[in-house]
Nucleic acid binder design. Structure first.
Length: 288
DNA sequence: CGGGCGGCCTGGAGGC
DNA sequence: TGCCTCCAGGCCGCCC
């Protein structure tokens, strides 16, 4: 169980984007599949949307977990009986396996007792997360999912798709890529890094991006996400390991959070601007 | 219609 | 040292 806890935990300070949810899904799946949910405890229903306790219980109690999926930043716990438990971690959510004897932590709003005797705990200090149950058949039509765009790690995601998708629009490319109606799963950090890798200025209008740059952007987005997944999704701001060292993926961040530092490629000073209320970092020479 | 932005929420950091 | 303010951001809804 300890191994599962370490594999499944989104570490402190990580802002869960697509790679963090995918790492969580892979870490939890071998421990959850085959388990039955024997008890559901909800301590606080005031998440981003009020938790429907009765719906959650009726859809999950006595049900066996058949598989774990992911759509955008939603973790999908598929159950027999035709329902799916949907978990969104928001900004600060964590989903971890723990022994039933472990004391309840602060901000631990929900726990699910499994047939093995372990528990699945949902902790979310900022309460931007979501917890609900749906008939599995409604997963695409439900209002949380119906508007969502393409998965960036699917084969259909490429430069041609992006170019077609933005036709007739003039939004800054960063805003376009962070809009889940176009592409899902990208948060501020990975978009920022992908734009740097592709050499595209974050404020550039989508109307003024060449075919070549769209191809490069698609490749960069996939490369950043795949690298982050391979490195355990450690997107860390304040995480430190036991020795006080920094998380692994932070080393790979070329521009995010590096205002006033030198660009590793050209030496120019990395700049920060605010777009749609979000910090945006870029190299003024490498990104045009 | 589409893009910008405020609000939700808490903890951590920085200023005085 | 302690209090206050600011900032982080996924997502929705409102506004222009």
């Amino acid at each position: 169980m300890l191994g599962a806890v370490q594999a499944g935990a989104v570490q402190a300070g990580a802002v869960p984007e697509l790679p963090e949810i995918e790492v969580l899904r892979m870490g939890l799946e071998p421990w959850l599949v085959g388990e039955t949910i024997d008890e559901v405890v909800i301590r606080n229903t005031a998440l981003r949307e009020k938790v429907d306790v009765r719906g959650l219980r009726s859809g999950t109690l006595g049900r066996r977990i058949t598989s774990l999926g992911r759509r955008a930043k939603y973790l999908l716990v598929h159950l027999d009986g035709g329902c799916t438990l949907v978990v969104h971690l928001g900004m600060s959510g964590r989903l971890t396996l723990a022994a039933a004897s472990r004391p309840v932590e602060k901000h631990e709003h929900a726990s699910f007792t499994l047939s093995s005797g372990g528990t699945l705990r949902f902790r979310d200090p900022r309460r931007f997360g979501l917890l609900f149950v749906l008939p599995t058949a409604d997963l695409t039509s439900d209002r949380h999912f119906s508007h969502l765009g393409v998965e960036p790690l699917e084969p259909s995601f490429d430069g041609v798709f992006l170019r077609d998708r933005c036709r007739g629009r003039r939004a800054p490319v960063k805003s376009f890529l962070m809009d889940a109606r176009n592409v899902v799963g990208l948060g501020n950090i990975y978009v920022t890094e992908a734009l740097y890798r592709a050499g595209v200025h974050p404020l550039r209008s989508v109307a003024r991006i060449s075919r070549l740059r769209w191809d490069r952007l698609a490749v960069s987005i996939q490369a950043v996400l795949e690298q982050a997944i391979a490195e355990g999704g450690t997107t860390l701001r304040d995480y430190r390991n036991a020795e006080g060292g920094q998380g692994y993926f932070q080393v790979s961040l070329a521009v995010y959070g590096r205002e006033r530092e030198e660009c590793g490629a050209c030496g120019r000073t990395i700049r920060r601007v605010v777009l749609a209320g979000r910090s945006t970092f870029y190299c003024p020479r490498c990104q045009r």
